[in-house]
Design a binder for these strands. Structure first.
Length: 166
DNA sequence: AGCCAGTCTCGGA
DNA sequence: TCCGAGACTGGCT
């Protein structure tokens, strides 16, 4: 199923991210692989012009966020893969701007399900587009770090870039 | 039925 | 004050 997506690399000074696009927009993003992956060249030909344009936006947005800046001109995001609940959580996450943080409980409350705090954690972990959908800005209660699917090192690094101290 | 990227309370160090 | 266990939670596989 995932192979219907166009996969394009994004080289940054933090490593090589991978972006995947559906016909609706950016659908997935991967952190650089720790084990230094194959340098295989993605077929740049055969990529529709629309997706090239989206990819350029993604690249700029990613680099801005990695630098702790606000991302402007995001590409369209295809989040249709999630459940209603997950999409509600992701929508809420996108309202958090750089340097800000929320707790899982605050997110739960914001989507009208104050007791679903644990499920919010699950939805964050299921987020297919980390960084652009800023799951790293969600902390546990009382400023504790919480978890992170991409590894806590990444969460700490991203927050540090945005000037958040734990 | 079982697993969680949570949170609260309470008890012991 | 700072953990750790336990209870309770709602959504997902």
């Amino acid at each position: 199923m995932k192979n219907d997506l166009f996969e394009l690399p994004i080289p940054t000074r933090d490593g090589r991210f991978t972006a995947r696009y559906s016909g609706k927009g950016l659908a997935e993003m991967d952190f650089p692989k720790v084990g230094r992956a194959s340098p295989r060249a993605a077929k740049q030909n055969g990529v529709p012009a629309t997706i090239s344009r989206w990819h350029r936006a993604t690249e700029t947005a990613l680099k801005n966020i990695l630098a702790g800046r606000t991302a402007k001109n995001l590409p369209p995001l295809d989040l249709t893969g999630g459940t209603e609940f997950q999409q509600a959580v992701w929508r809420e996450l996108r309202k958090i701007s750089p340097g800000q943080t929320r707790s899982y409980g605050e997110i739960a409350q914001a989507i009208g399900k104050a007791r679903a705090v644990r499920a919010v954690g699950g939805a964050c972990g299921a987020n297919p587009i980390p960084v652009l959908v800023p799951c790293h800005r969600v902390l546990a209660a009382h400023g504790k770090i919480g978890g992170f699917g991409g590894g806590l090192d990444w969460k700490r690094r991203l927050l540090a870039r945005e000037g958040v101290s734990l």
